[in-house]
Design a protein around this nucleic acid. Structure first.
Lengths: 346, 346
DNA sequence: CTGAAAGCGCTTACAG
DNA sequence: CTGAAAGCGCTTACAG
């Protein structure tokens, strides 16, 4: 059985009365073509509704004009926002986008990358658990396969790599500063699984540094899973203690939502008893009650930039490592209020 | 310039000392092959890290083993959840998934479908603005191109179509019932752009029917854009009126979030002054304060089912129209409380 | 059970 | 400026 019959370049050639070579050249605006011939070919192609078969082209050019995108999860809108940016830029450049998510499971990264390589994408945009780890099998495989890629959100670019992100440590310092300026002295940080996100390690770094610079006691750092609904016993213990923190920095907005919810369950109001600052800047944060104070990353723009960088690598316009560190900003929200006066706190 | 040199079927054949035909048959477990030969081929393929080039295969078989998914927006987690289901099922079946979103702009649907057809996907899973409209260009194009597809969320399957969804009218009746049982007599509904979602038309139908059956005055229905942050003047007017509704049904969870936020801005508390019930069942709703009472759709399962149906059509295992109407359920949440007593309301 | 050959739909030197 | 031909990497009747 052969291909379902669709119009091919031969049909167009026949209709226009030229060879398939001329059709190819005309439609791709490649080489020189007589203006009149070109017009005839275009008309024939249009009349027949001709769409070049990408498989034929890919076989010959060794380019699929499809890129892959791997993110930890599409359920976190931060990645959906970034993907929207990638999609926009890719579409404008005539690329298709295959997506895959690893569910915050670092073990699945290599397998997904492998499958994307097997699908012969032209390049990959991806966020990995730990870009610096020697154990980042995914990146090694990519390098080994000579596959162009751009890291998104991860800060570290390898020797031949490309990365688009923000300065996570600086952003976390901003978050700390906002809490400290509101009078909070007892700070804490809630993070997800550190092994699943190197961004959080940088955020912790910045947050702890800012606390230290302000002369505060080192904030307690609690980590929770990204996927479970509950934050776990350490979080509960921290906020049920008499000297509980009054300022909480969460490594992602999604964690901040969970934290606010759980604090309420403990009988603590936000921001009256505890102020919460998130990280990511997803839209939903603005609609919540209280609205979420957070660090806003330019997610869509990051996606677009990652695509632009990747395309440069695919086209070999730019070789060598390249990094874009985009601007973040702090967004005020109702979840951040003044620290309770000493009398209010046990 | 030719293909970047990767191992091809010829390399494997040479290494195993057989013809490429035998390699193909062995690796695809097609036809009969001597056990010993098969083992030798497999070993050679493994040693060389051979990955069949999908372009070669696609050209010959006229199958790309890639499907397309088009949704209104990935920023609404309901679609991200469904996509996760599609992805899971597709991966298990060895299919790649190309995604595209139309941003709730019906005009872009046809264009996106066209581009997916041009990319030669084997089939499409999609949610369109209005599946019944004669103006659903996207579906006409699909039919014209003989492209298998499965509608997701849309209820109506065309003569040759496939659809996976829930009974939106029945679900909206459940939502109404929950409000009515809590004592609410003045109901209202907030919807997005009706022209961008036929689901909402069915939800309105069910909601109004339930109100009518309960002998209530016809609820006011306000519609807002899906993308703007603000709900608009009609919403404000409705809830600033002295005889404002006490029970609000929102056609999506995202709208419910916005509504709760805006009600607060008007000085109305949820659920003390107004109870809110959403629709979709996205995870974030459970973490909010108040948590969102809502209709839960089995989004992941819907995605998986849509893929299964699509695969049946691609493989021509099942022809003719097919519909799956999955079960929804009502989830209680803090946003739904008893109706304020008459004395409380102006 | 296995191999030689044809052919899927393109692009691209190479002649002319 | 245009065409004939080769070839990208596979699969699949067809012989043997």
């Amino acid at each position: 059985m052969q291909a379902r019959s669709q119009t091919t370049i031969h049909d167009v050639a026949a209709r226009a009365g030229v060879s398939i070579a001329t059709v190819s050249r005309s439609l791709n605006a490649t080489g020189v073509t007589n203006a009149e011939t070109l017009e005839r070919v275009r008309a024939a192609a249009k009349e027949l509704g001709f769409r070049p078969n990408p498989a034929g082209r890919a076989l010959k050019t060794a380019r699929s004009r499809v890129i892959g995108v791997m993110v930890p999860s599409l359920r976190n809108p931060v990645f959906a926002d970034a993907l929207a940016g990638v999609e926009r830029a890719a579409k404008a450049a005539g690329y298709g986008v295959i997506v895959a998510s690893c569910g915050y499971e670092p073990d699945r990264e290599a397998e997904i990358v492998e499958s994307l390589i097997a699908q012969r994408v032209d390049g990959l945009i991806l966020t990995v658990a730990d870009a610096a780890a020697a154990a980042a099998d995914a990146l090694s495989r990519l390098a080994e396969a000579g596959m162009p890629y751009a890291l998104l959100y991860n800060e570290i670019a390898r020797a031949d790599g490309t990365a688009v992100g923000i300065d996570n440590a600086a952003a976390a310092r901003s978050a700390a500063k906002a809490l400290i300026e509101a009078g909070h002295r007892r700070l804490a940080m809630l993070a997800g699984d550190f092994a699943a996100s190197d961004r959080q390690i940088r955020r912790r770094e910045g947050f702890l540094a800012a606390a230290s610079a302000a002369g505060l006691a080192p904030p307690v750092v609690v980590s929770a899973g990204f996927s479970e609904a509950q934050l776990g016993p350490a979080f509960a213990a921290l906020f049920r203690a008499p000297t509980r923190p009054t300022g909480l920095f969460c490594a992602t907005d999604m964690l901040a939502f969970k934290a606010i919810r759980e604090l309420r369950d403990f009988g603590l109001a936000v921001p009256r008893d505890v102020s919460v600052v998130g990280f990511d800047g997803i839209g939903i944060g603005e609609w919540m009650s209280p609205s979420l104070a957070t660090i806003v990353q330019p997610n869509g723009e990051m996606g677009e930039t990652a695509f632009a960088f990747l395309e440069d690598r695919i086209e070999k316009r730019i070789e060598g490592p390249r990094t874009a560190t985009l601007a973040f900003h702090f967004r005020q929200g109702e979840s951040l209020g003044p620290a309770p006066t000493e009398g209010d706190t046990p």
